[in-house]
C-alpha cells in the first residue's frame, strides 16, 4: 500500500475575521481524524489543558490525535515536513496570513503528487468585510481572497447574513456561502469527512448538513468522471472518494465547492466509493443520489 495522499485545506480571511476561532473549533470537534494544523500565531490557539498531550515551543499535541504547530521559516518546506511525518497525518490545514492569497498556498496541493487538494475556505466577517473590500489600500487583496475561495464561511452574522453581503460575495465567487454560526460542526466543511453527520450534534439544534455515500462497481474514464462531477448539484460543498477505472488503477476525487480535482489513484481501486455533503436547506440526499445514478 502506498501512503495515502495528504489532503490540504487552506483557511484564508483577513485579520480578525475568525480564522483562529474556526481552527479552535476544528481542533476540539470529534471528527476522528489526525489533523495537522499550521498557524501563524501560536499564542491565539486555545486548547484546554485536559485535551493536551504535550505542548512545547512550537507544537501542541492533542489527545484526539491532532497536532497544531507554527509553520516556521518557510511555509512550503513545512509542507514537506508534514508529508514526511510518520504516521502521515490524515489532513493538513494551513492558516494563511490575513493578507495572503490562499491560492498561492493551495496550488501546492494540486502540484504535489503526495498531496490532495482539500480546498480554500475563506472566512468572511459579516460586520467588517464590506468596508475592507472597499479599502483603497487593501480592498483588491481582500476581494481576491473571496475570488479564489471554494467555500465562503460567514462569521459574526448573529442576525443573519445581510443580503447585500451575499450578493456582493456571489458577484465575486460562485463558492457556496455558509454561515458558520449555523453549523453544528466545522470539520465536515474543512475536512470533508462524514463522521459528525452520524447523528452526533453539538450545541444548538442546527442540523446543517446532509450526507450521501455511495459504494458501487462502476468504472469510469477520466473524461467521463470529469463530466459527471461537472454536473454535480451546485449546492454540494464537498465530494471525495475513489473511483474505479476501466484501464488504469482508478481515480482519487476531491471536489470542494466549484473546484474539481482528479488524480490517478496510488493503489488499484476495486470499488467506487464516494461521500458527499451539502446544506440540508438546499439539497436532499435523493438529489445527490439521482445525480450520481443518472446515466
Amino acid at each position: 500500500m502506498s501512503l495515502p495522499r495528504l489532503p490540504l485545506t487552506v483557511i484564508g480571511g483577513y485579520l480578525g475575521a475568525g480564522k483562529t476561532t474556526l481552527i479552535n473549533r476544528l481542533l476540539r470537534e470529534d471528527h476522528g481524524q489526525r489533523v495537522l494544523v499550521m498557524v501563524n500565531d501560536f499564542g491565539a490557539i486555545n486548547i484546554d489543558a485536559d485535551l493536551l498531550v504535550s505542548a512545547d515551543g512550537d507544537t501542541m499535541t492533542l489527545t484526539n490525535g491532532c497536532v497544531c504547530c507554527t509553520m516556521g521559516a518557510d511555509l512550503f518546506m513545512a509542507m514537506g515536513d508534514a508529508l514526511d511525518r510518520r504516521p502521515r497525518p490524515d489532513h493538513l490545514v494551513i492558516e494563511a496570513s490575513g493578507i495572503a492569497d490562499p491560492a498561492r498556498i493551495a496550488t501546492a496541493a494540486r502540484a504535489e503528487p503526495d498531496m490532495a487538494y482539500g480546498g480554500i475556505a475563506v472566512v468572511v466577517d459579516a460586520m467588517h468585510w464590506g468596508a475592507l473590500a472597499d479599502d483603497p489600500q487593501i480592498g483588491a487583496q481582500i476581494r481576491g481572497q473571496v475570488a479564489v475561495a471554494d467555500l465562503l464561511l460567514i462569521s459574526k452574522a448573529e442576525d443573519g447574513v445581510p443580503p447585500a453581503l451575499t450578493a456582493r460575495l456571489a458577484a465575486l465567487s460562485a463558492a457556496p456561502q455558509i454561515d458558520i454560526g449555523d453549523c453544528a460542526a466545522v470539520a465536515p466543511l474543512l475536512l470533508g469527512g462524514l463522521a459528525p453527520l452520524q447523528g452526533k450534534r453539538e450545541g444548538g439544534g442546527h442540523p446543517a448538513y446532509v450526507g450521501w455515500s455511495h459504494d458501487g462497481d462502476e468504472a469510469m474514464s477520466r473524461a467521463a468522471l470529469a463530466a459527471k462531477l461537472a454536473q454535480a448539484p451546485q449546492a454540494l460543498y464537498r465530494i471525495k472518494g475513489l473511483v474505479a477505472a476501466p484501464d488504469s488503477a482508478g481515480w482519487e476525487v476531491q471536489v470542494v465547492g466549484r473546484s474539481i480535482e482528479i488524480k490517478p489513484a496510488l493503489d488499484r481501486v476495486a470499488r467506487t466509493r464516494l461521500v458527499a455533503i451539502g446544506p440540508q436547506s438546499a439539497i436532499a440526499r435523493a438529489d445527490i443520489a439521482d445525480w450520481w445514478s443518472q446515466g
Binding site: A73, D74, F76, M77, G80, L83, R104, A106, A108, A111
Partner: peptide, 18 residues
C-alpha cells in the same frame, strides 16, 4: 511560483531553511 516549484525542490533536496 513556489506552489508549482516546491514539489520539484522537495525531490532534489533544496531546503535552505537552516
Amino acid at each position: 511560483e513556489m506552489a508549482a516549484m516546491f514539489p520539484v525542490m522537495r525531490r532534489i533536496g533544496m531546503d535552505f531553511r537552516t
